[in-house]
Design a protein around this nucleic acid. Sequence first.
DNA 1: TACATTTGTTATGTAGGACATAAGTACTAT
DNA 2: ATAGTACTTATGTCCTACATAACAAATGTA
Lengths: 233, 233
Amino acid sequence: MSNNVLNNELGPIVQKTMADVVEIRLREYLKEKSFKPGDPLPKELEIAHSLGVSRNVVREALSRLRMLGMVETKKKRGMVLARPDILSSLERVLDPLIIGDSTLQDIFEIRLTLEMGLADLLYLRKTKKDVEELEQIAKNQKVTGGRQTFRIKNEIAFHGKIYQMTGNETLQRFQSMLLPVFGYLVSLEKVPIIGKVSHLDLVEILKHGSKEEFRQGMLQHLQHHFDKLKRIP
Amino acid sequence: MSNNVLNNELGPIVQKTMADVVEIRLREYLKEKSFKPGDPLPKELEIAHSLGVSRNVVREALSRLRMLGMVETKKKRGMVLARPDILSSLERVLDPLIIGDSTLQDIFEIRLTLEMGLADLLYLRKTKKDVEELEQIAKNQKVTGGRQTFRIKNEIAFHGKIYQMTGNETLQRFQSMLLPVFGYLVSLEKVPIIGKVSHLDLVEILKHGSKEEFRQGMLQHLQHHFDKLKRIP
DNA sequence: TACATTTGTTATGTAGGACATAAGTACTAT
DNA sequence: ATAGTACTTATGTCCTACATAACAAATGTA
């Protein structure tokens, strides 16, 4: 018998605690009964009794769902299913000091991918006012020039504004959530590298150029990042 | 005093439970002391005593961190900080039936953005073998043709393969995690719409065409999705 | 009758104790 | 010295009790 088969047959032993099991069962229950936001959940004691566990365990499981924003509770009124904020769960674990290097690298690549793909949304939704504000940000950088900390702040403001211009709130929040990750990665570099295409160049393209030109401009702007990517991962 | 200021001054009243507070305090503590994966945490009772709360509350907070994969516990040995899997937290809340329509729309746009930005990673890492496998998937569709359920499966296989070809595991998992969302959105459409550029066309471009040609091809392939996007969000 | 006040009920939030269990650690006997 | 035993410790689970908030019902007053 090959080792591969063995690995499939016996997975790693994960000793689930009761809270884990109850969390899963609750999820299944909510899905099966197709609960919708606003629907009231059973009482803690009812859950505990019907699952044959203590109220403590149920509360640990519920505490998890509450953290994710899946349930909200009010005294006496009981608990209701709620609409979780999908990004708040991400936010809790997105700490560059904790997540591994390979994941960090993956996230960095995702950011590059997103920025290369932004052009379509951007040209669909950019407004004159937005472009003007973006130009102002780009000009600010030009004026103050040197200072490292300010340079980074401005970099963040510029790219953040671009995300905001897409009109996609989730995307925008996602980007701002990734900032600490990039701040961390950038801090590892000794010398700040400036792309061939500047922020002002990008603004100029946004004003008078086409989608395709913007994509090319963004590619040039990010080129030094792409240059450092490994071919075979 | 303007209403805007008022809104900033007094935010909405959020009555945090002790478990919420302890969770936050623990996070801060881990950050301040710059805990790294593998470092042992204080005992439950120590935490409870030093925070002045019951062990129950501490366990609820720890249960949350355990769910996110931030801490792992073994009997007697105690708890250690662990490397959370950033996507597993997302997975728990990514249910199209629960999240709101606007977020659903945002996610859909993010997917389009990603696919439009994939070209660079793809051309950096695609292998001959990958392209051949992709071609096989595309041909499979051509052969069997009609059937709705199979068409969707094949669509998923094709685009999934493209993500896999980027060599970015996080990106790939992210995409496969979004599939239920798109399955849901697609199920809302009456008539399946086929883009002007087919899967086989895309494969052909991957074989002999340039990055830019691929991007244009992908744009054509997704054009009907872009057509339906709202200008002003 | 209409309204205000009080009382009761209920579900969650918090505290604290008890014990089982697993996994080290120290000790003892051959 | 090694094997086996007893002890210790931290987590996992259960139980009881009570505080608190919010709703419901009952009661009293104009």
